[in-house]
Design a protein around this nucleic acid. Structure first.
Length: 255
DNA sequence: ATGGCCTGCAACGCAGGA
């Protein structure tokens, strides 16, 4: 079973690339973030024609998440249970006995910003929600745009990024607390190339210069990690014409 | 270099992303 996640930065703009990704990588499940469209505008026809089903929770202009899948979604939940957040950032469902939670964690803007406080609060709510999900679904993958680079090796220049949003200590602690619920970072189950990143800034020509961060993650419960055969970042996607600023991340699970 | 670019919305510039 192949699971993938991709922050597409507008599904409207990236739809052709998403369809190409489905054709080339043939994931069983693809989590999308930043679809930036209301549910009425979701391109269900095109995705159905590609042989996939879809569940989605979107809004105008900002945020928005979706899960595309080969098989039917069961027990679909939008948002974090018990947390009334108007921003559409979470969608979860079960596919062939594997629980998948697609997350778009807030960016935080700057550590001085109100949005940073919202991010930290949001992370504590997510932690509470995941604790319950893990009890209910031992075979659990939490995947998406975390907007957190967990370690020095996940950032091209840790000194430059020290204390900055995406790389600050409180964010990294929150990430560790999520992992401590009983997950592992799928990417680090395997030997990986140095300077492996999942996001590169449009503005600095970051991709060509190798200036990136690894902020998109797949957390696997112990029951899934046991059967995980690979984890990779599809960095070539970032080299396409009119790319998303994020590259997809994928895992293969033996079922 | 406290910005550089991309997207959506709307309106001829802004907010937000990361």
């Amino acid at each position: 079973m192949k699971l993938a996640t991709w922050n597409v930065n507008s599904l409207k703009v990236r739809l052709p690339q998403v369809l190409d990704f489905l054709t080339v990588q043939k994931p069983d499940v693809l989590c999308l973030q930043e679809t930036k469209m209301e549910d009425e505008k979701f391109p269900l026809m095109e995705i159905t024609a590609a042989g996939y089903r879809a569940i989605f929770s979107g809004q105008r202009t900002y945020n928005g998440v979706a899960i595309l899948s080969r098989s039917e979604a069961a027990d679909v939940i939008m948002g974090i249970d018990g947390y009334d957040d108007p921003q559409k950032r979470v969608i979860a469902a079960t596919f062939d006995g594997v629980r998948v939670i697609c997350v778009y964690i807030p960016n935080g803007e700057r550590v001085e910003s109100d949005k940073y406080q919202y991010k930290l609060h949001w992370l504590s709510q997510l932690r509470a929600g995941l604790k319950q999900e893990l009890l209910k679904y031992p075979r659990l993958a939490v995947m998406g745009d975390y907007n957190i680079a967990p370690e020095d090796r996940d950032v091209h220049d840790p000194k430059l990024w020290q204390g900055k949003v995406l790389f600050s200590e409180p964010e990294q602690s929150a990430f560790k607390e999520l992992v401590a619920l009983g997950f592992c970072d799928g990417f680090r189950l395997f030997d990986q190339a140095e300077k492996s990143y999942s996001w590169w800034d449009y503005r600095t020509n970051g991709f060509k210069r190798g200036l990136g961060l690894r902020i998109d993650h797949i957390l696997l419960s112990a029951e899934l990690a046991k059967y995980c055969k690979s984890c990779a970042i599809d960095r070539e996607r970032r080299a396409h014409d009119r790319p998303s600023d994020h590259a997809p991340v994928m895992v293969e699970i033996e079922t």
